[in-house]
Nucleic acid binder design. Structure first.
Lengths: 229, 229
DNA sequence: TTACTTAGTGTTTTTAAGACACTAAGTAAA
DNA sequence: TTTACTTAGTGTCTTAAAAACACTAAGTAA
């Protein structure tokens, strides 16, 4: 079966920059292409948008199919539409970035992808298409967003210590932060709930666990508040 | 002549939210549709992306064709891809917003558009498609951007007084600003060049004219500076 | 019991933002 | 030419936020 139009139409794809947090590093998920063009090269997970699905649905579906990731934080980044960004034909790509709790998700390479793996953001191989550009924009966006919106929690387990959270900020922003000032700010925000649990199996004093008060956050955003961390 | 593909393909459009500054109000440029769907209704200027032009090129071309606007500040806003946003078929639209110096550009309605006109941003008619959503996102983006990037100059003539600039900020942000604090901040930024001219034909003390130091701005941005106004 | 590691906690200093009112310069009208 | 009117232009004080800074507490391991 084929589909015919009066004027030529480019193809539409989505690409996802998936960030995860390892113990010591910010990582990005890449897949190794199993088909031409750029066969064997690493690339961002993504693929064609089907005609009866929304852009975000397409992004989630591709993530699921290619990397097994599910129910992640996902936000639109930018749309890339240079005419020769794909050697085959005109392809416009809507890029998304995603944040996942690395601990939850063991990667399994899947359809379309020879392999899927996490790379340190400073240790990425050369990427297919204009994906290096997409990736660097995503990293920049993540850093900016982290400053003024509480999205860091998306990279941590549900319950986390303040040290873990600070560590996350230090890794993403790539600079050390003062412990007392950090705790002051982050608690002063009023979006963390202190649980009655502490971390387990550590060889030193155990830290209290907190969780993010997502309900309160949603309520405040709806009411027009802006958050600056 | 027709074009045939193996899978169905949606259409791709660009839509532009064009802002201009009147004496007393922030305005948006709308066109009245001359063709179905939504014939006769007001809409954002925009149209189909051709297969051999980039997204930004398409936006500039449509602006030129439909409103006669040329060489404007243009930046990508967001991509809208809900499956039923166009009653005819699947259409994904990449939205841009533009800032123009209203004084320069007299509007002339043009091809595809029955009419083109400026509307106060609080006085817009009901819009075709999901254009109301696009418009309100653009307005929000403009306000946020104005806070931390010096883009306001795009709405003013090349040479302007500090009062005009303050007035612009007050109109866009919809709140009064303190004259002395405003001048302190804006001059402290170091991106304004004092000319040796003053405004003409005013019935009171004439104010000094300034211009935006675009070179310096570009240089600093390249060097990684961030600007907060 | 001692050494080691990370958790947890306030105060001071510095910097940026906000509030606030008068004089200067020009035009227009009496 | 004097006077009234309008907008330009200018600094200081107050307040709030950010940054700098060091010790004690609690637990584990040797």
């Amino acid at each position: 079966m084929t589909f015919t139009y009066e004027y030529p139409r480019g193809a539409l794809t989505v690409d996802c920059v998936v960030f995860g947090l390892d113990e010591e590093e910010l990582k990005v998920m890449l897949i190794q292409r199993d088909l031409p063009p750029f066969e064997g090269q690493w690339a961002l997970p993504g693929g064609f948008v089907q005609v009866e699905e929304s852009l975000e649905d397409a992004a989630r579906r591709e993530l699921q199919e290619e990397t097994g990731l599910d129910r992640v934080f996902l936000e639109q980044l930018y749309t890339f539409g240079n005419i020769d960004r794909d050697p085959r034909e005109r392809v416009v790509s809507v890029a998304y970035y995603a944040l996942v709790k690395l601990s939850n998700h063991r990667v399994h390479a899947a359809t379309d992808a020879r392999d899927a793996a996490w790379f340190g953001v400073h240790d990425t191989p050369s990427l297919a298409f204009d994906h290096a550009k997409i990736f660097s924009l995503a990293l920049e966006r993540l850093r900016n967003k982290l400053r003024y919106q509480p999205i860091g929690f998306e990279l941590l387990p549900k319950k986390f210590t303040l040290s873990q959270l600070q560590h996350l900020y230090e890794i993403v922003l790539e600079r050390p932060l003062d412990k007392r000032n950090f705790r002051k700010r982050v608690l002063g925000m009023g979006l963390l709930i202190e649980t009655d649990e502490v971390e387990q199996d550590v060889a030193h004093r155990a830290a209290r666990l907190y969780r993010f008060d997502e309900r309160k956050y949603r309520r405040l955003v709806k009411a027009g508040f802006h958050f600056e961390l």
